[in-house]
Amino acid sequence: MIRITINGKVTQASEGETLLKVIRREGIDIPALCHHEAVEPYGACRLCMVEITKEEWNGWSKYVTSCLYPVEPGLIVKTHSTKVIEMRKTIVDLYLARHPNCAEIQQLADEYGVTKTSYQTVVDGDNCILCGICTRICDEMGFHAISMVGRGHGKVVAPPLDEAPANCTGCLACAQNCPTHFIEFEDKGNSRTIWGKKFEMITCEKCGKTTITKEFADYLAEHRELPREYFNICDECHRRSTALDMGRIASWSKEVK
């Protein structure tokens, strides 16, 4: 166990844990847009910046992204010092200039009292903050369907060659976890379109409700050794048939009684 001090309060952390994890466990709210527990920390959004120091540092302190920084014995962390708030304000200010129409950024700006950006606003910008959650989750799940393309101003998230990605199974994890809800998809009838690729959905054999895409179910059946029949009906119809199966078994014992 490692003892660290966060905002004056001594707390315990285990080795290898990151500062952000400990800070959040302590119930302290600091923003982080590029953080997701399913994937490795990335340090892209810079919003989780905190001030750290140690007694032996003779008054010196440094500013680190808490999502990437592992706990060390004797760390003294300040999550809301004047300097940290100032830095976070600057970052939010920059985000506001780049993504003026993004609701999530506007909310952050409100929280940090940034009413107007002090930089030149990008007029026809999109809402992608390039946090990489989508690409990292896609990689983690084993699909590698999308990635960061280009550099600098031209950097975007896209499938290879901007064509419908062959590896995409339409699981929607990228869109569901996008912190700014930028990734577009369309669920219509029994088809789903995302990244320019059209998928056929599984419709429940009993009630007709759509569940996941056929390609995703095929992938899970093949790579995770799951019977493909499991995916033929929806969860509600699964529960109904479970009740009927168990009911049949229970009825035998009733007769015994």
């Binding site: 799940m141 569901q176 976890n177 995703f216 899970l220 799951l226």
Partner: peptide, 9 residues
């Protein structure tokens, strides 16, 4: 990641 795999499986 809310991919619904477990719900379907």
């Amino acid at each position: 990641v809310k991919c619904m795999a477990c719900v379907a499986a």
